[in-house]
Write a protein that binds this DNA or RNA. Structure first.
Lengths: 244, 244
DNA sequence: CGATAGGTTGAGTCGCATCAACCGGGGTGG
DNA sequence: CCACCCCGGTTGATGCGACTCAACCTATCG
């Protein structure tokens, strides 16, 4: 409990760029307001300035889009260390919703603060940009998933991706992780109905690849799971910084 | 025949940012190598430096991903004015393929050139970044599409998006445009089989919303088409620059 | 004129959705 | 303390949207 902005961000960003002592101190100096939200609360209300930037400290959140008739799709997941506003500072509006899945804590960088920070440290700006570009890479992979993988493959892919992302910020050892999602959430992520999520889950369980109970995911056979998912972690760019 | 880099880029970027005379001259001064490619040729071979940036001058291209068994998904379309490398300069690798759909001309900005240009004009850098962020917005919308819209809705959505994007660079009057895609291409874009593309197309034709023949798309009933697609152009950010 | 790429059509199948019921546990209030 | 509720998970029956396979049609081009 209780990561602070600087440590979690450093952990994340150092996968992408090498940061100096000065960059560290710049982040540590930042005293952003910390917001607490309960589960299923919207962070970006209409009218909020999307040019502030929030970083997830604890808990899970998501971006989503919805049609008038209620069909809803979770566009991307945000876990600790992720930026909530993928449009950093530059776009005046956002065309999707953002809400917590669990109760979460986020740290706010006001628009001006982040500009200030970027002007003091180009390498930090660069790291934030890369973080954002990696977000785009994940988005492309996810379009691919939903378009061309079957239900089982998609779910297996998600179960490969999530522990890797959490491991990148020290929240998973690779063999499993917390997974505080309901089957309905999984449905909205995977573009499946709740019922079919349930059955697909049973499928993956019965083959012994994963266990999922009580909000915890255990992976029993990672190579097998990766094979099913045809998972290639390159798109996560977690090994891009050669000096680590 | 033959748009040049400067004019097409200016046309595109000015939707996002107001550029100065100096910025214009900077772009016009650029004498990038122009590459010609036939249809269905790969632009980014493995090993090409993805930190060069190419701009499409004429023709259509796409990003795609593919599974070992051949299932293929077109992740995004590139039309004149679009950047081929959405990771501008910053990521050392790209996890998708890029190839032409028609024969195309692209203009190259070498890695160093573009860095040089950005350092001379921060507003140009900003405009390129926004262009890239808008690309992410389109990607999110496309994940949504494939996840939650039916075949007809998806296709209608595509037929709303494409003329708008082309109109943004002067290649459509809004009532129609060239559409040099085969039904197989459409299938890879929409995540449908070729056969189903054909039937869905007949569906949209028979309701009188669109005509599609001989590589040309005509829209007979835009409001109707938008209603079917539940299309909201906000995600394209074409009206973001208030001074236009 | 045959070859080939793209488009069209029909028949049969399957993956996933929908609808509906039921189960189990944790929290709440009487 | 128990009755109840509600949420999340599970199961079965049924239906539909989209896929696959296979044939055929049409236009273009060397």
């Amino acid at each position: 409990m209780g990561a602070d902005v600087a440590s979690i961000l450093l952990r994340k960003l150092e996968h992408f760029a090498t940061l100096s002592e000065g960059d560290r101190r710049l982040l540590e100096r930042h005293e952003g307001r910390v917001l607490h939200l309960g589960p299923r609360q919207s962070l970006l209300q209409e009218g909020d300035d999307p040019r502030n930037v929030h970083v997830v400290l604890d808990g899970w959140a998501c971006r989503y889009k919805q049609l008038e008739d209620g069909r809803r799709q979770i566009i991307s997941l945000c876990v600790p260390g992720d930026l909530c506003e993928p449009t950093i500072v530059l776009l005046p509006t956002i065309s999707h919703g953002f809400c917590s899945l669990t109760s979460i804590r986020v740290s706010r960088f006001a628009h001006d603060e982040i500009l200030q920070m970027f002007s003091e440290s180009p390498s930090l700006e660069r790291a934030f940009l890369i973080e954002m570009l990696v977000g785009s890479e994940m988005q492309r992979e996810w379009t691919f998933n939903v378009g061309r993988r079957t239900a089982v493959e998609r779910m297996a892919h998600l179960f490969c991706e999530i522990p890797m992302r959490l491991a990148a910020v020290g929240l998973s050892n690779g063999a499993g992780c917390d997974l505080p999602l309901t089957q309905a959430d999984l449905g909205d992520i995977l573009a499946l109905s709740t019922v079919h999520v349930n059955r697909t889950l049973q499928d993956l369980r019965s083959t012994g690849f994963v266990e999922l109970k009580g909000r915890h995911l255990t992976i029993n056979n990672l190579p097998g799971l990766r094979a099913v998912a045809m998972f290639d972690p390159a798109y996560l760019h977690l090994a891009d910084n050669p000096s680590r």
